[in-house]
């Protein structure tokens, strides 16, 4: 393998994992935009997506093409439930209070997954058959194509939703100013519910597409949550596009760190570069540097 093809290989595998970070980051962004909450349970949505698909397939005997959407759907329902039971009853409290509540939720979801699924590591079969594709010396797994395709479709769908639909525009309005939005007749409660549903959905999607590549277990949510949070901060908190780009960038940095430095230090390399980027641009790469209004 030449140096160039090795580099290409790192970028491909980094972007694959990074797509899931990006989808998790998208979930963070959407909830943050309507509520100012950093949802610590976001990583658990990602974990549940992968785990539920595995178990629908194994226990339920549901065929893969059905197991995947089923898992995503169930996690979406979990997201709605989380909002109904824990966030909506205390709305109006400080974001910090709600953030700690989401920490509790993540402990619950992780604990529940451990009880139901056990502590083993599982894998999901790839979405399609076929061997790796040769790409100028680097190999591309067919599953990576699925990952890129689904991520791209999600981003396009999201862009359409926010730009073209009334509900999407209403959600953006909530993000700008909740009070003004509610005065304009937008039902903020439903927007928050919708944002939890949406976050859970994209999170689960990220988990389910990655599971065939990286394996999954009840406790993968912590690290995926951290990476998702890092990605949306890197992209500029509140910017959905920045979140996805931040995720892919983080994945590539990590993969380069593993390949060029050492696999043990791959996260350290990614985070050091991320900190450097943050010191350089304190509002993220695509965040608006808001002028302090006095």
């Amino acid at each position: 393998m030449t140096a160039a093809s090795a580099l290409l290989q790192y970028v491909i595998s980094g972007a694959t994992v990074g797509s899931t970070y990006g989808l998790a980051a998208l979930g963070f962004t959407v909830i943050y935009n309507t509520t100012e909450i950093i949802n610590f349970a976001q990583g658990e949505f990602v974990m549940l997506g992968g785990m539920l698909a595995v178990f629908a397939l194994r226990w339920g005997g549901v065929p893969l093409p059905l197991a995947v959407p089923l898992a995503v759907l169930i996690v979406t329902a979990v997201g709605v439930l989380v909002n109904r039971l824990t966030i909506r009853p205390v709305q109006g409290r400080s974001p910090l209070t709600m953030i700690i509540i989401t920490i509790g939720v993540s402990i619950l979801l992780r604990g529940g997954a451990m009880l139901i699924f056990g502590k083993d590591t599982f894998s999901l079969p790839a979405f399609s058959q076929g061997g790796p594709i040769d790409l100028g010396g680097a190999t591309l797994l067919p599953q990576s194509l699925w990952v890129f395709g689904i991520t791209l479709l999600t981003v396009l769908g999201m862009k359409f939703f926010f730009d073209r639909t009334l509900t999407g525009k209403a959600m953006l309005a909530c993000a700008c100013d909740r009070k003004a939005a509610s005065l304009m007749g937008i039902h903020v409660d439903s927007m928050v519910t919708l944002s939890f549903a949406f976050s859970a959905l994209v999170g689960a999607l990220g988990g389910v597409i990655l599971a065939p590549i990286t394996l999954t277990a009840y406790d993968v949510g912590i690290l995926l949550g951290v990476k998702g949070f890092a990605a949306c901060i890197l992209g500029g908190l509140g910017n959905p596009f920045g979140a996805v780009v931040g995720g892919i960038l983080l994945g590539i940095l990590e993969s380069l760190g593993a390949g060029l430095v050492s696999s043990g230090y791959k996260d350290a390399v990614a985070f050091i570069i991320m900190l450097a980027l943050l010191f350089w641009r304190p509002s993220g790469l695509f965040g608006s540097a808001r002028a302090e209004r006095v």
Binding site: A230, S262, Y265, A268, I272, L278, P282
Partner: peptide, 24 residues
């Protein structure tokens, strides 16, 4: 110099780097 959630991320990143060093 970072604020709010960006500060949370900065300190989180630092914590993870130190944790990795303990391991590696």
């Amino acid at each position: 110099k970072l604020r709010g959630n960006y500060l949370a991320m900065g300190t989180l990143g630092f914590g993870i780097i130190v944790y990795i060093v303990f391991n590696e």
